[in-house]
Design a protein around this nucleic acid. Sequence first.
DNA 1: ATGCGTATTCTATATAGCGGAACAATGAGC
DNA 2: GCTCATTGTTCCGCTATATAGAATACGCAT
Lengths: 254, 254
Amino acid sequence: MSKDSEPRVDSTLSKGLAILEELTGMKSGIGVSDLSRELGLTKSNTFRLLQTLTTLGYVRREPDRSYAATLKAWQIGRSVVENLNLRAAASQMMLYLSEETKETIYLAVRDGLNIVYIDKIESTKPIRSWNPIGGAAPIYCVGTGKALLAEDYRLLRDQVAANLQQYTDRTITDVEALDKDMAATKLRGYAIDTGEFRPNVLSFGAAIHLPNGETAGALGVSVPDINLGEGDSDRIGALVQHAASSVSENLRRL
Amino acid sequence: MSKDSEPRVDSTLSKGLAILEELTGMKSGIGVSDLSRELGLTKSNTFRLLQTLTTLGYVRREPDRSYAATLKAWQIGRSVVENLNLRAAASQMMLYLSEETKETIYLAVRDGLNIVYIDKIESTKPIRSWNPIGGAAPIYCVGTGKALLAEDYRLLRDQVAANLQQYTDRTITDVEALDKDMAATKLRGYAIDTGEFRPNVLSFGAAIHLPNGETAGALGVSVPDINLGEGDSDRIGALVQHAASSVSENLRRL
DNA sequence: ATGCGTATTCTATATAGCGGAACAATGAGC
DNA sequence: GCTCATTGTTCCGCTATATAGAATACGCAT
């Protein structure tokens, strides 16, 4: 028998959180008795725990005297996501992409109909694309943006459609074309920008997901067209896609 | 002297949750010592609570041996909100409202006698009202809240009446006035807040209904008074009302 | 080496939380 | 109306439990 020395677990805290979990999982309130049965606790114990959770603001009493979770747990959880540093989670993969491509790597999140760059690694090659951290770009024009757009295309389509501005001769200004491109992007698994925002600057992007499937951001590689040889496009696309899903995997472990 | 007989509070649970809150509020990990100082707990106590939180999956150890909150708290809280996938159903209409008004758009649900913002779209105008996602406001003071309150006014009236706190000189602190306002709101179809929570910040709100008639949440537009010209009030009100009923329609299809 | 700041383990002790039973409040069935 | 069944709440004595504080171990400077 291996004396694993199980870490000691405070039972009160454990039970309290169990109650909270149970409660948040229910659409409507539940009574003390049912709850205690559910969790295999004594009524009095359950009652006291509910009492403390209530005074702490995690639980409230419904008018029908049953107990229900408040949104406090959610509010707390939200700040985790807010503080969740995508940059930290993505940094290894960004380095990897940089090594593999020697091009400029971007990490971007969506902000309305734009994307905002929250991190980047400069290209080591002489000719490089330029975009400052904190800078923005239209969502339908660049690799990262298109990757993000494809994720929520149903929600964003009409909005974007109403604002299709032309930046280069490659820019997609036709909704039908955008529809097709988004469909293709979804199939492909990563997005391609053929110089639609800055002339002769191509880019590739793939989305990063939170554990629940929500879109958290996107990774992208930006490449001057003259740097791009035959077949490079596919290779970089695949790399970005892989990197993004790897970051998503990282987030899953948080 | 009121014999309040303070409800008994399990200290372990309380401390544990305090730690969790503290942790979720931090951008990066924190050590046992700092944390214990922060919360006024013993190091060993803090350590043990961290240990249980870790084995329960709420906390993880960073590579640098510090402690940080995991996404579990978030996932739990999320399920509260997830029970209604309101955000998805409302997003298109929120964008629409944003386009039409250029002001800040809120999606809120009721949480006891407060409302909590579960989504928003920032105003594009320079002066904008500010409320964080996850933030809360009294139900009887703001547009979204008043819309929600009007829906269940019979149930909530007395509770609310007992807690009429004054936030601005426009705040309704008189039950009779509230009665009238709620009646007017029902007739009108949307709620108006004339700067009753934050001075000079007006807001408009309308309720979203589930297919069975239950109230799911509310859409709102928040407007600094100086942005508001003659007739804008009616226009925005009508917009919000239409948007909310459109979202209700969406929910019907889910 | 040495000292200082951590994290972690140990242990004796008090007390916080526990279960069970008693009590109150509800509501259903007749 | 009354009973009976079920739920929510309080009480209380016991002991398992969480606690504080000291002891130990680690890391990292100088």
